[in-house]
Design a protein around this nucleic acid. Structure first.
Lengths: 128, 128
DNA sequence: ACCGATTTTGACAACCGTTTTCATTTTGCC
DNA sequence: GGCAAAATGAAAACGGTTGTCAAAATCGGT
């Protein structure tokens, strides 16, 4: 029943950044879990639908998932080198998006915001 | 040479919102153009690389393209019903992204921001 | 515990957008 | 014209994702 889904969820929780479905699948298998790729996809979808994990799309169209600390609305600051992710709240952005929408007569405004950068550690590693 | 690329570019310019590659291809064909899907993809990539058009990913992973009025950095306010797109500048967001990155020690900060909503016309159409 | 009904699972095939391959065509240049 | 380089496009390959469907696990009632 939920054991597989929990396994998927746990795997995500143990990860620092966003992981792809295939990634999670490989991890579970190497951990000795008996699970199929199909089930991993289904579990990830179910978790995402239930708001238990966050999804976003890579630049090359891959879906990546993450178990986030909060289920409140937030955005991500992702290191493009090591994938480390920081959850950030952005009241200013929320307000801006709302204002921009209203200004042009748009209603039911939603938005996607992701910030990418090189984290301090990776910057040091690169420089040193 | 560039004739096919120009045809692709023109097709985008004639469109109001973001169009998918296959979309552009279908349009060109129905316009009587003799062009292959491969070439459309290549043209779109070339145009995107050259900064002549903007690319973004749909929620279902499809790449969509748009000929934008300016090549300066800007974001989009897209009607989720009719696809109509307004280009918006967001100095506040730029600053916010930069600040958030700096706050967590991230450098070379970039960001993706897209705003979706229902435009006035579509809202009226729905209500009426 | 037994049995049937329902749900979950997963190997495999299908899908779909995209990319690659490669032979052909077109173009640029002399 | 003639040749090399670039562009083209049909078809095949690719990769992530989703659908199929039969087998296995689970649940409910008794």
């Amino acid at each position: 029943m939920t054991s597989r889904r929990d396994a998927v969820h746990d795997t995500l929780r143990r990860s620092d950044g966003f992981r792809s479905a295939q990634d999670v699948y490989a991890q579970l298998r190497s951990d000795g879990a008996k699970i199929g790729l199909t089930t991993v996809y289904r579990a990830l979808q179910a978790l995402a639908d239930g708001g238990l994990i966050d999804v976003l799309r890579t630049d090359d169209g891959e879906s990546v998932y993450r178990a986030c600390a909060t289920d409140a609305h937030h955005h991500h600051l992702v290191c493009r080198r090591c994938g480390r992710t920081v959850e950030v709240a952005g009241p200013a952005v929320e307000r801006w998006a709302e204002a921009v929408g209203a200004e042009h007569g748009f209603s039911e405004v939603t938005h996607t915001v992701e910030v990418f950068g090189t984290c301090a550690d990776c910057a040091t590693a690169k420089a040193g």
